[in-house]
Design a protein around this nucleic acid. Structure first.
Lengths: 250, 250
DNA sequence: GCTTACATCCCCTGTTCTTGGTATGTCGAA
DNA sequence: TTCGACATACCAAGAACAGGGGATGTAAGC
């Protein structure tokens, strides 16, 4: 049943074309899993301007309104806990994950009054790209379906993945192609090396490194190092994993 | 059976006290799931001194050696793909996720020669704190157990969560805080503006912009613009959406 | 053979950046 | 009050880079 259920939901999501369809699918699956409500939020990384993202839920209106107020104050303990865990967590575990303030407890209490009892939240992050949560909750008088939390984890992950795919599609864009040498120079540049250092590492001339980076900039149509690195990161040509570790040692 | 399986593994992990025990548990569970090998890597973002992370695997020695060499060159396409997905992915999907270079394909080919065929990798990130992957792989002559990938997703997530709990306490972890001005300057820098241009935009002196960037670099302990931008992106201080959109319109 | 495309390598000039300084005003803690 | 921490602002010198040249070798296609 386990594998079948997840498989079925995954298949269903493949055909999802809009927020509304995803919302409907989530509503149905959350019921079948034994939950009363769901909430999916996806933030695409944009600090300042209008928040391009997605918020789907079937919470009671009352709670939704209150939640917005709390969220604006940045007081949601569940969100804070999301920064601490790889895996989903039931809300009754919050105290063991983060320190809870009086305001946090009050918020959870208000949630109960509005019809949201316990919940299970699946957190996911993509450095620099997105941050999402998928929550399944039950009414205050009911218990979480403990034996289905693993399934909720899968379903939440699938839903978040689907929501991400619904976002800005970059599939049709033509990604510039760099030669291997250009990419190597770019990688060491992203790691904070100067052209001269990169030249020594690669065993070629400093001017050659500069030339490789020049060509790479032309292909990406940018005119400085930092933009080149950002563009390459965004396109997946290089990854944070390739860079971050080297920051400390380099 | 499936729900039981995940539950059983979770129970097993609760009692795990050391890397060795986790490694053993993963080895066993990966066999039972129908895989030939596993690899778990966890990188913690620590000041530097302490153990930077954890690497457990039962890959063939030959491949482990080769992998280190490749990894030093930052050539692992799987790790790059980890920055793009909320959910685990089979390696035959790599091409649809990120651009593959010649070196990437070569690396995958060498992997096959060393006994690593296809694989399924579960990526997880905690902004500013940690990043981890859990991979289950099969020999070149075998196929991935497709019907158990959902289970692998759960198991991988549980294992990563366990590895995180095994790690050093993260009480000392501190994500650098920048002043508003510093972040503004950083943002325009990430957008490809020079210090002089940023100065005009913000209506302050060029030298002041340079000073703000200087302070920001000090707080992130990096020595150049591109590293500063990368670090800020990784920590979520700025997002690609703040930058990329601007590149297209500007 | 010829051409075209591309990866690789090198030089020069003017601009930009990094890095060491100094200085002022504000705010909160001692 | 005095002190420290911090954001803000500016200067000067040398290193590093962006953008302009040109050159060789290799592989594919006509």
């Amino acid at each position: 049943m386990y594998a079948y259920f997840a498989e079925e939901f995954a298949t269903e999501l493949i055909n999802v074309q809009s927020d509304t369809e995803l919302s409907g699918a989530l509503a149905e699956v959350s019921r079948r899993l034994g939950f009363d409500h769901f909430a999916l939020s996806l933030e695409l990384r944009s600090g300042s301007r209008e928040a391009p993202g997605l918020l789907l839920h079937d919470y009671p209106d009352e709670w939704a309104k209150v939640y917005v107020a709390f969220d604006l104050a940045g007081q949601d303990p569940v969100r804070r806990a999301c920064d601490k865990s790889f895996i989903g967590f039931a809300w009754d575990m919050l105290e063991e994950m983060i320190p809870l303030t009086r305001g946090d407890r009050q918020m959870l209490a208000v949630g109960k009054e509005c019809g949201i009892g316990d919940g299970y939240t699946v957190p996911r992050h993509l450095p620099g790209l997105a941050r999402g949560t998928c929550t399944f909750a039950v009414c205050p008088d009911r218990d979480l379906p403990r034996c289905r939390l693993a399934l909720a984890e899968i379903v939440g992950t699938l839903a978040l993945s689907c929501a991400l795919a619904l976002g800005p599609s970059r599939s049709t864009e033509t990604v510039p192609v760099l030669s291997d040498r250009q990419r190597e120079c770019l990688l060491w540049t992203a790691r904070g090396k100067t052209a001269a250092e990169t030249a020594i590492i690669l065993g070629i001339g400093t001017e050659t490194v500069i030339q490789h980076l020049k060509m790479a900039r032309e292909r990406y149509q940018v005119h400085c190092k930092q933009s080149l690195v950002v563009a390459a990161l965004f396109d997946g040509l290089i990854g944070f994993a390739d860079i971050i570790r080297w920051r400390d040692t380099g």
